[in-house]
Design a protein around this nucleic acid. Structure first.
Lengths: 165, 165
DNA sequence: AAATGACCTTGATCCAGATCAAGGCTTCAG
DNA sequence: CTGAAGCCTTGATCTGGATCAAGGTCATTT
């Protein structure tokens, strides 16, 4: 159990991601900063969701991602060694974490397909429908980055959408 | 062990994906067809790689994807029931398949980030660098779809790139 | 050998979404 | 209260990549 204030980081570029983070309360995001200094949100995590740079976690190599609290948060961090211990002592954890990842994987595939097959407007509509909580909770700047558009363009989409009904 | 000829399907939209497919020889692709009839390649699989619609496989619900042989192929299909059996009899399989998915997941995250952070030209350069085999083996139409651009535009990128050296 | 179809290219034009610039509204620290 | 930062919006302009159209090459079929 760990408390974090708004803008607090649990991971920064260059560090190794040493824990699986389970969000008990609050909202976090994971993002990358590109060579031009632009941020790209990869994932949000709200109550009862996991957030982790799995690549860095397993290889124990430096991450290229940031994990930041968007609000004051309460999280549980499962350390690398502890998780390995769980895995080997209780094979059920292998199973459970396999299933967790599989679900995340499927979701990610769908997102990539949508990114290639749908317009920004469709992607935003989908986001609002499937994550109404996040859409209300997170600044639109971050939603835009998550969807792969600029905040200006998202603003125009919103204006258009709300005019319609 | 199963033989497939070019253009053969192991999964079509509407069917349930009943097996994990391991490619022994040849090359396959998995794709979705959008409401306008346009194909979007999600994944390729060459020798010693896996291909499966994990979502459909686990939920046993109809898939929205196609898995098609791009050449004559030899594959091994692991059926749903057999895999569950392996999982419960030999917990190591949970572990192994967890690790396989984790790696795929990381790769997919990277792809999504690149899709949002890089230009088509950069994405193509990355593809050629990291999958020289595929770039040589697969028609450019399919590479374009995988990268999320039109074949015409990819053709122009290639013309530009080769001019430079 | 002609015909079909798969694949690649090139030109002309168009548009979704980016960029640049400015202003306005909140919130919150000093 | 005041200033600064964070966030959203709107307008003007630009551009990466799409679309439409045509032609060219090669391999396979008949």
């Amino acid at each position: 159990m760990r408390r974090l204030k708004r803008r607090g980081f649990l991971l920064q570029e260059g560090e190794v991601c040493r824990s699986y983070i389970y969000v008990v309360e609050g909202c976090m995001r994971m993002y990358e900063v590109d060579e031009n200094g632009v941020e790209h949100n990869l994932q949000f995590a709200q109550e009862n969701e996991w957030i982790v740079d799995i690549g860095s976690f397993h290889t124990e190599k430096p991450s290229s991602l940031f994990i930041e609290a968007l609000e004051a948060c309460v999280v549980v961090c499962i350390e690398h060694a502890d998780l390995l211990h769980l895995y080997t002592q209780h094979p059920k954890f292998d199973r459970n974490f396999r299933v967790i990842i599989e679900d995340l994987f499927v979701e990610l595939q769908q997102r990539l397909l949508r990114r290639n097959a749908s317009s920004a407007e469709q992607r935003y509509a989908h986001f609002v429908q499937h994550h109404p909580g996040l859409a209300a909770r997170v600044p639109n700047v971050h939603v835009a980055s998550y969807l792969g558009v600029t905040p200006e363009f998202l603003s125009r989409l919103r204006a258009k959408t709300s005019k319609r009904g």
